[in-house]
Design a protein around this nucleic acid. Structure first.
Lengths: 216, 216
DNA sequence: CTCCGTGTAGTCAAGTTTGACTAATCGAGG
DNA sequence: CCTCGATTAGTCAAACTTGACTACACGGAG
């Protein structure tokens, strides 16, 4: 599963009520258009789909104050909130080599309680170790490694990635254990830069430059 | 772009002529079903699509010797070979955090000449460094970092991944410089385990176990 | 002989993603 | 006043992906 649903649900949730363009702007503000498939089409599609599935409730709204076609505002339903947390938890634990999903979850991690976040991250480390083991076993021929030739480099890549992922997760766990950041139920919620764009606020990060790493 | 086209083209190329089921088996043999979207539907779709685009030439064949519906065999065209190398080169250099694409390219890297492979990998390192720089710049607010709160962990993740990717690439470059493996134009081609399944050969790795890391 | 499981080969509908396109309004410049 | 460009908001067709399903043949159990 991709990161788009989590991102959209998270954006709507932070606003309480939001229309597609607002979500789109938030995601761009968070930099998500650089590292996830958060393109207009995907966002509007996700909104409509999730409305059909009862995760969001739609309000038809008169043409906006500032040009453009009439817009639709969405609110989360109870079912939507449930799904949001299901996705958030799943994205933190599952190691499926899709870093954009993890990045998205990271943006919302403080919506959980600290203890749960830590538990989930420890599960993640375990999942990474399982994957590492499975990979090395799969790519070990009877005659010992060395028969693999350059194919062994594929194994190498996965093992290296897994180790890097585990190391990073461990680092995060240590920071959280050390009391970093403010989690749910720990007083005033996060409100630094990058929280959310208020209606009409300009995105100071929207430079319009293309960043390297973009697909061409 | 996903890894499927490269994988399918590469599989067909190694056989000279192959039907869908054969490709499907090779990809499973290489372990690709574990780390890429190489599902039957995707494979057959890719074959048909690439035939429509003139990358492959299709031969309708009488019902197979061993049950099942009639099958179609595919051969690469000149255009297909061109596209294959275009994809291969692109997958080695582009850093778009899709490790399955890199893994696929790795499996075919010896189809290039050693000097070119090295050049491409050095380009890759440069691309990774560019991405790293772009990320740190994007996520550095005016008031200095620290204002970011937990959002800074997203940056952290990307930086950590980039560094790990660069490190791995450097390692591979050193191994190749050291003369590892046999590349195009260096005498007898690779023929170890994991080369390709001959018609009718059983896949000794097909255990049927589910591996962790699978999507549920 | 018949039924069932396994292997062979592929199809299909539903859902998702992409990239380009539409359409309306506002403000500045000529 | 008119036009151009930017901003706002969203649509659409084409391509791709997913997971479940079909259909046929062989071989062994009962």
């Amino acid at each position: 599963m991709s990161a788009i649903r989590l991102l959209v649900l998270g954006a709507v949730r932070r606003h309480g009520r939001a229309h597609g363009y607002q979500v789109r702007n938030d995601l761009e503000y968070w930099g998500a258009h650089e590292w996830s498939n958060a393109k207009p089409g995907s966002i509007y599609h996700a909104l409509k789909q999730m409305e059909k599935q009862g995760l969001l409730h739609a309000h038809e709204i008169a043409p906006s104050t500032a040009g453009g076609p009439p817009r639709t505002e969405y609110e989360m339903t109870a079912k939507g909130t449930e799904e949001y947390f299901r996705l958030l938890r799943g994205s933190l634990t599952a190691y499926d080599q899709k870093p954009d999903v993890l990045a998205a979850a990271l943006g919302f991690i403080v919506d959980l309680e600290r203890a749960e976040a830590l538990e989930l991250l420890r599960d993640r480390v375990r999942a990474i170790q399982d994957w590492r083991k499975a990979v090395t076993e799969y790519y070990t021929p009877e005659g010992g490694p060395g028969q693999l030739g350059h194919i062994g480099e594929i194994m190498n890549l996965w093992v290296h990635s897994a180790d890097a992922g585990a190391e990073w997760t461990d680092g995060l766990i240590r920071r959280l254990e050390g009391g970093a950041y403010t989690f749910a139920g720990e007083g005033e919620p996060f409100s630094g830069v990058h929280a959310v764009l208020a209606e009409g606020e300009r995105n100071p990060y929207a430079t319009g430059e293309r960043h390297p790493g973009d697909e061409r």
